[in-house]
Amino acid sequence: MQRQFASAQASAGISIASRHVEAGTYRLPRAHHYRIMVHASVATRTYCNDAGRYFVRRAGDIDFVPAGQEGGFEAETSFDTMEVRLSSAMLEGVASEVGSSAAARRFDTRHLLRDVRIEHLVRVLENDDNASSPSGALFAESVGVALAVRLLALDGLEIDRTVRLSDVQLKRVLEYVDAHLHEPLTIDTLSRVANASSSHLRTWFKAATGMTVHRYVLRRRVERARSLILGGDLSTSEVAYLTGFAHQSHLAHWMRREIGQTPRGLRRTR
């Protein structure tokens, strides 16, 4: 997924790249351009050194780093992000047009913004860049102008406050699932962990992670089983037991569906 910034769009003062970032330190050094990052992975747990606390980044969360400032965080797992670079000249030109010439110099680094318009504009730019015949600099410039106008109103943005699981609630659920994969995990149990009703957990969990609770638990069980098979000498029945599957066939069925491999196939490639 790692791609270079598009030259046609860069000539218009705006460029975009889709990035796959491995777990660890994600650092954005000081630059002459403005950067907008739209998170494209589900439930990535990160640690912010500046704030001194953990955050859970969800798909659609936005990080904004103005020109001359730096940003970054520590990610516990790999993740995907869309990064837009907006030139200072473009943003300051738009600011002058709308009568806010000083606004571009008052930006601060912002994390975990939720704004439907910014997310939509970034995805429009990404889709055009992915097309075999992108619309070129004129289209990219129009998207850049729209982004600049939205960013100039950043302090007054109505952030999406749709009711959802808090970072603390989601973290509790994710950690509980990982610690109890070998046990039965029901909606009722997890709703008590999250301190939410069963119906709300179903809705909010899918909104936060992009998948149902059931599918998330299955995926984590398969990931754990894959790790155990590749990293040790446990039998398939032992792996099935330790990851909450009823029997070997049950494990093999879901491994084939989730990762396209069976325990036997994995052992052959080890």
Rank of each mutant, 00 (worst) to 15 (best):
P184S: 06
R3G: 14
S18C: 07
I159Q: 15
Y47G: 02
A207T: 06
G13C: 05
L91H: 07
I36N: 03
F245V: 13
A95Q: 03
M90W: 09
S15T: 05
L165N: 02
Q4L: 11
D61A: 02
A51G: 00
V38A: 12
T81I: 06
E158P: 06
L266Y: 07
F55A: 02
W254R: 06
S7Y: 12
T189Q: 08
T77H: 04
G99D: 08
I14K: 06
L152K: 07
I36K: 03
Q9H: 14
L185Q: 08
R219C: 08
N195R: 13
G244E: 06
F245M: 13
F107M: 10
H39E: 02
G72Y: 06
V193M: 06
P66A: 07
E76C: 04
L190M: 09
A89P: 00
S197G: 13
H214M: 09
E22H: 07
E141L: 05
R123M: 13
I14G: 08
T44K: 01
H32R: 15
S78E: 09
R58V: 02
F79H: 00
Y54L: 04
H250D: 10
S166G: 14
V98D: 11
T243L: 02
V213K: 03
A23S: 10
M82D: 15
Y241Q: 14
V98E: 14
E119Q: 15
H247C: 15
F64W: 02
V21I: 10
F205T: 04
D160H: 14
A40L: 04
D115N: 15
V193H: 01
H20G: 08
S100D: 09
R267C: 07
R150Y: 03
Q248I: 04
E92P: 01
V145Y: 13
L91E: 07
L154C: 12
T162L: 10
V163F: 07
E158A: 14
D155I: 00
V173W: 00
L125A: 04
S199K: 08
L157T: 12
V94F: 01
R267Q: 14
E70C: 13
E97P: 04
E74I: 14
Q69A: 13
L157R: 12
H253S: 10
R106S: 14
A104F: 09
S41L: 03
N195P: 00
Y241F: 11
S41A: 03
K171C: 05
L230D: 09
R161S: 15
V163R: 14
V239R: 02
V193A: 05
L165A: 08
T109E: 06
R257K: 13
R110S: 14
N49H: 06
T209L: 12
A40P: 03
S41V: 01
F55H: 00
T162I: 09
C48R: 03
V94W: 01
